[in-house]
Simulated assay, not measured.
Amino acid sequence: MDNSSSTERFLPVTSVNSGEGVEITPDLYCFTIQIVNVCFYGKAGRGADWVLIDAGMPKSATAIKGAAVERFGESNPPKAIILTHAHFDHIGAIIDLLEEWDVPVYAHQLELPYLTGEKDYPKPDGTVEGGLVAKMSPLFPNEGIDIRPHIQELPLDGSIPMMPGWEWIHTPGHSEGHVSLFRKQDGALIAGDAFVTVKQESLYRVFTQELEMNGPPRYLTTDWKAAKTSVEKLASLKPKMAITGHGIPAEGSWLTENLDMLAREFDKRAVPTHGKYVEEE
């Protein structure tokens, strides 16, 4: 197993929002790297405590560190890194970041084999219904990486280290150990790829970042029954704002109405008509 390929293989795909950030709440900041979002939890300020959620695309460590310096000051690493899951576009910078930041990394128990060098993900499905990104997906890395001794299991009680008031929710389907993060106090949701607000299979939609409610990216989703249950679970929380792994943040009535619709009509709106993992089910 090549323990670096998922974090070393630069992919020349991007969006109009790449390099831009938006503050969702005073302590929640969404930063876009090419086609994926990372989150900074913590109020802005030099020397302030903060947590990084997900680690972006391969070769993006410089961009993440630059955004962190701008928000939290020089020589101020996060207290921890939380991973929604370990697909290549959510761990791309992590090895480079850990060379400079000696911090713990937390993920769900079922995601750990992909972060300790024990397993590779199933290969992306280039035959799945969608668009050009789906057809390109066999080129995407699927190899596991080994980030021991940094990697740790998320606490079984649902709490999130260094993020008081937040809970993690197991939302499998897109990956076995996928989690979403929720704060009941204000209804803030970090959904990862349980659902996304862009048609991730379409190169045009990915580039333009048109707001649109969608299920998880099809080319990497291997369990559609679990994915449906996960969306239903998140819709039942009635989040007031959501940062997804791909697409622009959503809030208010648009989020409520469209997430409810996705949950009700998941088979029609999210599940592809054909594809390797659909046919296997």
Rank of each mutant, 00 (worst) to 15 (best):
K65C: 08
G187W: 02
Q34F: 15
S180K: 00
I147C: 10
R205H: 14
G252F: 00
K228Q: 09
P138W: 13
T84V: 13
L211W: 10
L255Q: 08
T32K: 05
M163L: 04
P122K: 10
E99T: 14
V13P: 07
V13M: 15
Y121V: 02
E20N: 12
R218N: 04
D89C: 12
L132I: 09
F72C: 11
L11G: 11
W166L: 00
E153A: 09
M162L: 09
K240Y: 01
L181A: 07
T171D: 00
Y106N: 11
S253W: 12
L98F: 15
Y277L: 01
T229H: 02
T25A: 13
Y114V: 05
G247Q: 09
T197G: 07
L83P: 01
G45K: 03
S159Q: 03
H85C: 05
L139H: 06
K135M: 15
I94Q: 11
I145C: 11
A107V: 04
E251K: 15
L11R: 05
N3C: 14
L112W: 12
M213K: 03
A63H: 03
C30S: 09
V36I: 09
V103T: 05
D54C: 11
E8R: 12
A86W: 06
F31W: 13
G73S: 04
P272G: 07
L181D: 03
T208W: 10
S202N: 15
M213L: 04
L97D: 04
T116P: 00
T84I: 03
P104N: 07
L28M: 08
P217Y: 00
T116G: 14
E210T: 11
N214G: 05
L115A: 13
E111L: 11
A263T: 03
L211M: 06
G19H: 14
A270G: 07
V271E: 14
V38T: 11
H178Y: 01
H174T: 02
E20F: 07
K59D: 15
L98Y: 02
D49T: 14
A188K: 02
G42Q: 05
G131A: 02
W224S: 07
A134Q: 10
V231K: 04
Q200V: 10
T84R: 05
V13Q: 14
V128D: 00
K135V: 11
N37D: 01
K228A: 00
I190C: 03
D49G: 04
P138G: 09
I248F: 06
N214S: 14
F40A: 03
V128M: 14
G187H: 07
G252M: 02
P77M: 02
A191K: 06
I64G: 15
G173P: 01
E23G: 13
R71W: 11
A191D: 03
H178M: 06
D157H: 08
I160Y: 02
I82K: 14
L11E: 15
V16Q: 15
H246R: 15
A226S: 14
